[in-house]
Design a protein around this nucleic acid. Structure first.
Lengths: 339, 339
DNA sequence: TTGAAAGCGCTAACAG
DNA sequence: CTGTTAGCGCTTTCAA
């Protein structure tokens, strides 16, 4: 039992006894059609279960496809998942569909996805770029009219629209909050690679806050904790030092989760913590976690808005939209330094 | 400055001085080609920045498009995000790309996405169906050879492959764990609607465990907590009763988060809790949360495997794959009933 | 108000 | 080893 050929516009036309073009007119509501034929056509469409082939349509009309390509590091990460959802909700209203892929922080995989998306003639491309990727190769595509928006971090080798959190201000604010609690040895647990935009910016904010308070910058207090496990270990090691920190700024959600875990393992409830990026359980933990909250849905919405404006003909120069972070004080940041 | 027309196969052919078909042969490696022409063609492809139009190719070859349609309730939900990632990783190896959308638990939105995906001639369709959706309309598409796989819950009106967690066994095991701790009044906090497959199954497991232990089933101990806020309130209300429960089985991750929140608000650390679906902070909380863990990545992988097998010609009857859950004992389930 | 012809970018089928 | 012709399913263009 071979799969039956799917019914086409012609099948419908034949069924009704009109030309294919007439069916097309009825379905797309362009040319004029008599009420009679319209009715007959619609009935036949229903009867045969006809579904127009969007790709065939597209190839003829020549424009870009009604899809938007989106590349994020990992779909399982709720931060990026929520960004994606924000994008989807915004482009849905324009009848656009998401073509999605995870780069897994691998530049080659990212590159492969971009190639595929371009081959599919996406209307726009949105990428949370991996650290080592180069995007110069996107120039041709963009100069032929396809909007490119970078998410969370700017791309390399290509000036394009970009949506980021207020990383530096957030890092500064979170650190200042700890300093206000009279902490003087504040560790920074960051992700990798060290050159990663978000890490760099948040670290810069951390340093600005130290400087503003006249505190020295101690490089040895800046450690790596890219995964939850790594951050937990890093935390434990920090606390074993001769001169341990009394407070920690965790530079992203995974680092923060690991830090919480590490503190729990070390049995330390006297270490202050501020997490960059809010955590699902922040208010249930004891102490509740003070966080520099990002707004991933707003990031997605802003990215979509930028791209749609470009599709509508906006030819102004590339913009960077900064979505503000918000310090949510809950308690973990206010533990007094135990000296 | 109008957008320049994108370069086509013909442009490349002309540039080199061969026919379009020759370029096609070089690029797709089907027919034989001399090393010389191949080289010249590839150089021209590079020079002109040619990218083949996948949709045009597709329309000619006639088969389904090299995309897979995936519909989940919410991309921001890490459970479904991880399922999606599992699917993506599996289909990538076959050169398939994900077309994705969120149903937002709205049957109409789900239906619209399905229609779009069918119009795009996806190779396969994977859906975590909304509670009230009907899928009879998918029969035509499926009988024309397109695999359909339901995720997390079976679809309605259509017998198709399906991948679910061992909901009933998990519910039973989680409840039995509480009973083993000598609890006799165990509440069930579930999501909505009441008819939702996962809720029904988990509740059935809960009842089986009660029955096996000779405990009565008390309907008043089964309450709704679909969102985190709702579950928190439900928990507080439960504990205010004349005869409060001494233990709680939370039927999904949101309910569990809310329950934890409710317990914290009520200042009750003496209520035992088992969460269906593991929580990111489970081991950091005090007490650490005992969970019936699901395996979303495995669910995604299994779904992809089913769909790919169908694409490879598997015509056996529809299967339901059950991905086992795993009880992770951490402490919260072993609080003794305080009488 | 409708139809016929041509063609979007690509490949199948045949020829050379 | 390469080119030609035809046509995928649809829409544009022009004519009736």
């Amino acid at each position: 039992m071979a799969a039956p050929r799917r019914t086409t516009l012609h099948d419908v036309a034949q069924e009704v006894g009109v030309s294919a073009k007439t069916v097309s007119r009825v379905l797309n509501g362009d040319g004029p059609t008599s009420a009679q034929t319209r009715e007959k056509v619609l009935a036949a469409v229903e009867r045969l279960g006809f579904q127009p082939n969007l790709m065939a349509r597209n190839i003829r009309t020549g424009g870009p496809d009604t899809t938007v390509g989106l590349i994020i590091p990992d779909m399982g990460n709720p931060f990026f998942g929520t960004v994606a959802r924000g994008i989807e909700d915004a482009i849905r209203e324009r009848g656009l569909t998401l073509l999605m892929g995870s780069s897994a922080d691998d530049p080659d995989r990212e590159r492969a996805l971009i190639t595929t998306f371009l081959a599919r003639r996406v209307s726009a491309l949105m990428v949370a770029p991996t650290a080592r990727a180069d995007h110069a190769h996107l120039r041709t595509a963009r100069s032929s009219g396809m909007p490119v928006v970078f998410l969370d971090r700017p791309g390399a080798g290509l000036t394009a629209d970009c949506v980021v959190s207020s990383n530096r201000a957030g890092g500064r604010e979170g650190t200042a909050h700890l300093i206000a609690g009279r902490h003087r040895r504040i560790a920074f647990i960051g992700d990798r690679p060290v050159g990663l935009f978000t890490r760099r910016e948040r670290l810069a904010g951390y340093r600005e806050a130290l400087e503003a308070a006249g505190l020295p910058y101690d490089r040895s207090l800046v450690v790596d904790g890219h995964t939850q496990a790594e951050a937990a270990e890093a935390t434990v090691r920090l606390l074993r030092r001769a001169e341990p920190p009394t407070a920690i700024l965790a530079a992203n959600n995974l680092s923060a989760m690991g830090t919480v875990l590490g503190l729990a393992r070390a049995g330390r409830r006297d270490i202050a913590l501020v997490s960059f990026d809010d955590l699902p359980f922040a208010e249930v933990l004891e102490p509740a976690i003070t966080a520099v909250a990002q707004d991933p849905a707003a990031i997605g919405a802003a990215a979509a808005e930028l791209a749609l404006a470009r599709l509508d003909g906006d030819r102004t120069r590339a913009r960077t939209v900064t979505v503000p972070t918000r310090l949510i004080v809950r308690g973990s940041g206010e533990l007094p330094p135990g000296t």
